[in-house]
Design a protein around this nucleic acid. Structure first.
Length: 488
DNA sequence: AAAAAAG
């Protein structure tokens, strides 16, 4: 039986909501208005996820709520939907927003805003998206005209407040999204100060993937008699994600990545690196090698971040090289692969990163490059997830990458390749410089879009069978033959 | 060890 999206195979120790209840429920059973139901249907949804089934009625009843849920569980709709109905029953006033949603990153705030637009099409509601990195003018204008909902990152909200552009005294509904991430990012003092500016007579919803002490304290202080619901477990419990470790030396990482990108039927991939500089360099490198890539990290200006994300979502590029700004919550449909170019330092980040794939019931693969220095970090990941990740070894040594790099044949005549005459110096950092034939290709568009051709890499079938990891994830696809089974 | 968020 298929596990319902967002449900938990074994919800150890939690008050285990009967999955059948959520499973057979319909959005119409949740007390949403007809206009809202139409919008939900138009968006293509029929059945609420477990978090939606549990949270929506509570929010409707104006209860405070603590929800333990990962992104990708339908969490956003679980507060956006009932909020729309609540807000529909009132009138907006200039500079006095009626509700506020706080999110830790600009991208997450934008995603919430997109949800509001999608589900609010049949309502006359105004929103303002208050995030940094963009001009204040439009935001101030929207505030002056009056908004029903404010969607904000803490920094810009505080900034505008201090400039006297916002009154929060009319804000009777507050949502704190990704509270644990807010904690990680040092936003708790800001959150506290914002909470104090809101009327005490209000409804507060707090969403968090985990409940560390400071978040508990925050909830005790600012929520009143909250309902507590808990649904999803970490993304590792997602049986749709097949996980692999790839043992590789630092200087072979890029080559290993390129080979995987070419041969593992990669449709859409996010490649995570630990440092912004690595993200930049890796993106440039992949572009030079003809891949359709983009990058996203916090040193980019906001318009570039948005542009890259738009390219990725539209499919113009199918590989996004990212820092951990994209690790959490980012919801892009159809990401087939996550590559951890660097093993993340914190095991939590691993869980969030790989959770970008295997979404909405789709199958996904997560490859994590592990160098000898990463031994401790990956051990922590396995300790946290309780899963021993199958390990493979990148068959390096010869560096003859072109052998597994044939498509498209005409654009890369092997015979035309000059002897590699570059100095060892240019080679020394990593085996990254493209062959002369590759470099000559302008943009190498043909190769850059392997998925357009639904490229099926040739695979040597029977020999692969032994390499099938039986777990986790019940994934039975063959693994690329340049990876060797490693003893560990 | 990094990254994120106000500028």
């Amino acid at each position: 039986m298929a596990v319902p999206y967002g449900a938990v195979p074994e919800a150890a120790g939690s008050p285990a909501p009967d999955p059948d209840i959520a499973h057979h429920m319909n959005f119409a059973d949740l007390g949403l208005s007809d206009e809202l139901l139409q919008a939900v249907e138009a968006a293509g949804y029929t059945e609420p996820t477990p978090i939606q089934a549990q949270a929506i009625p509570q929010v409707h009843m104006m209860k405070d709520l603590i929800a333990i849920a990962q992104t990708g569980t339908g969490k956003t709709a679980s507060f956006v939907l009932p909020m729309i109905d609540i807000l529909a029953a009132g009138r907006r006033r200039a500079r006095m927003p009626r509700s506020l949603i706080l999110a830790p990153t600009r991208e997450l705030a934008m995603q919430v805003a997109e949800n509001f637009e999608k589900y609010g099409v049949n309502h006359d509601l105004k929103m303002a998206l208050l995030i940094g990195g963009v001009q204040m003018g439009d935001q101030v204008k929207a505030l002056d005209e009056g908004v029903d909902v404010l969607i904000a990152t803490p920094g810009r909200l505080m900034d505008l407040f201090e400039r006297g552009k916002i009154l929060l005294t009319g804000c009777e509904l507050l949502v704190i999204d990704e509270a644990d991430r807010m904690l990680d990012m040092g936003f708790i003092p800001d959150i506290e100060s914002i909470c104090e500016k809101l009327p005490t007579n209000r409804q507060t919803l707090l969403f968090s993937a985990t409940m560390p002490g400071p978040i508990k304290k925050l909830a005790d202080r600012f929520l009143t008699n909250p309902k507590y619901i808990e649904v999803a477990r970490p993304a590792t419990a997602n049986i749709n994600i097949a996980q692999f470790k790839v043992k590789v030396t630092p200087r072979k990482k890029r080559e290993a990545l390129r080979q995987l990108l070419r041969t593992d039927d990669v449709h859409t991939a996010i490649v995570f690196a630990n440092r912004k500089t690595t993200v930049r360099d890796l993106n440039k490198s992949l572009k030079r090698h003809g891949f359709a890539t983009g990058e996203i990290h916090g040193d980019m200006d906001q318009s570039s971040r948005m542009a890259e994300l738009a390219l990725f979502k539209s499919g113009e590029i199918n590989i996004l090289v990212a820092s951990d700004v994209a690790a959490r919550g980012l919801d892009v449909k159809g990401v087939s692969h996550v590559f951890n170019f660097d093993t993340p330092w914190h095991p939590d980040d691993y869980v969030h990163r790989i959770g970008r794939t295997g979404r909405a019931g789709a199958k996904g693969r997560a490859f994590t490059f592990v160098t000898p220095e990463d031994a401790e970090a990956i051990a922590n990941v396995e300790k946290l997830t309780g899963i021993e990740i199958p390990v493979f070894e990148f068959a390096d040594g010869d560096g003859k990458e072109q052998e597994s790099d044939k498509a498209p044949a005409e654009s890369k005549p092997v015979a035309d390749k000059p002897k590699r005459s570059r100095s060892r110096k240019s080679e020394s950092k990593s085996d990254d410089t493209p062959r002369a034939g590759e470099r000559a290709e302008p943009k190498a568009k043909a190769e850059a879009k392997p998925r357009r051709e639904a490229r099926k890499p040739r695979r040597t079938e029977p020999a692969q069978e032994a390499a099938q990891p039986g777990k986790p994830g019940e994934w039975n696809g063959p693994i690329p033959d340049f990876l060797n089974i490693s003893a560990g």
